[in-house]
Nucleic acid binder design. Structure first.
Lengths: 236, 236
DNA sequence: CGTCCTGTTGAGCAGGTTCAACATACGTGG
DNA sequence: CCACGTATGTTGAACCTGCTCAACAGGACG
């Protein structure tokens, strides 16, 4: 059972998340209302599983608040973090009948749950919805290709620079002071970038020493030299 | 007709490629004919560019024969090979107006070219075609996530095992003797797996020494122990 | 105030890279 | 058809980045 000690999802939060997600692009009001009607909001605590690798893929998720990650593990114990997500990002699209990845919250989150059946039967009625799903998964593909480049070709501190730029670029309201929140642990970042947590930590230290960033406590980073950071992170 | 495997694309080759690609799933004959009508076959020599990073994304490509690769390079000189392709695989889908990747042939190839405009206006008329495009790009995403896992978490010889399993798994007619053709160079494999060409070569040697494969000349590999190879390659 | 958890830093090690030599395959022209 | 020259692939040796193991520091929370 999930904790309900946090504020319930307001209608505004929900609509905001859907709008940000791009799922409603070109969709009429009736369709949006039908979409809202099949959405079930659910509250999660920090570090709780949303769905697990191998379980039946019977829902799609849309975070309204908080932050989440998608990962994949193998029997030999290795783990690859595939994505860090937040409000307006989709989780749980699966080609097969079972999830091949797991998803967890990083912070306490409110997440909309759409039963696959409801969702896809709605998509049957609205071609625009199918197009939007296609557009979203193309964006996902693009991000993953950038990620692939970074892991395949970049050095440790460049990979960390890549993550910081990726996180900054997706902020809807880029903060003027370039302050970034990092809700994940060093080990999560390491598994995202194909590094150990120690190497990740050293990479942060190096960027700090070179005055590209300032590490503010455990989970905040201030970008001091955005251009230099982007030059390190270059993936296209 | 039957013996012209050298140059001109036969109608059979073309239909075969389209069938393998999965683009015609649930598509009626009229639609398929219209698709064939806008396809322009073109012959390429080995190691020729099909399209280049930064150029206008005005076409989609479908190889009928030969083999190809998609790569991305950055100013600093690093290159990531993103995919090795062959008959029935799609090339050149782009979200933006310009390609962010380049594509080259590995061997001499015949490739169908669809002008984006023609292609997408045809897709306007056939929802099934749009669905098929969506399904194909989901398959691409799945492959890229496997690739990401391999590069992020696997050691050198495990990555090579991963590539060999990936290439073997996609053979339409799995050869009984487990003989695999590798039309790419060691440096291409290295850039695909995030390794240098020397490390790649050493990884092949290691797999040979451990009797998992047999390297037959420059561009053929015989798989001797498929189970062991798959155990090394495990990505889910 | 102590405990646990996360992050940082250090030291030694190892896998992968770099640089270099050699081997083999392939295409070309004699 | 063979000989040669160039491409690609393999192997060796030294080096270096990142990993492993370990100690310590700083918050968060009871």
């Amino acid at each position: 059972m999930t904790g309900s000690e946090h504020k319930a999802a307001s209608q505004g939060d929900v609509r905001d998340a859907i709008r940000i997600s791009g799922l409603c692009h070109e969709l009429d009001d009736v369709a949006v209302e039908r979409l809202l009607k099949i959405a079930v909001p659910q509250d999660y605590r920090a570090r709780e599983q949303i769905f697990g690798q191998g379980s039946a893929a019977n829902a799609i998720y849309l975070p309204c608040s908080g932050s989440q990650m998608v990962e994949r593990s193998v029997a030999s114990g290795q783990r690859q973090v595939l994505a860090f997500l937040q409000r307006g990002h989709y989780l749980g699209f699966s080609t097969s009948s079972h999830y091949v990845n797991s998803a967890y919250t990083l912070e306490a989150s409110c997440i909309l749950r759409f039963a696959s059946q409801d969702f896809f039967s709605l998509a049957e009625d609205y071609p625009a919805l199918r197009d939007n799903i296609g557009r979203i998964s193309n964006q996902v593909l693009e991000r993953v290709l950038d990620h692939l480049f970074a892991i395949g070709q970049k050095r440790a501190h460049e990979r960390v620079a890549f993550l910081l730029c990726q996180l900054y670029a997706r902020e809807k309201t880029p903060t003027e002071d370039l302050l970034l929140k990092l809700p994940m642990r060093r080990s999560d970042i390491g598994d995202y970038l194909g590094l150990t947590l120690e190497t990740t930590s050293r990479a942060f230290s190096r960027l700090r020493k070179d005055a590209l960033i300032d590490v503010k406590g455990r989970d905040h980073v201030q970008i001091l030299d955005k251009e230099a950071l982007e030059a390190l992170a270059e993936v296209k």
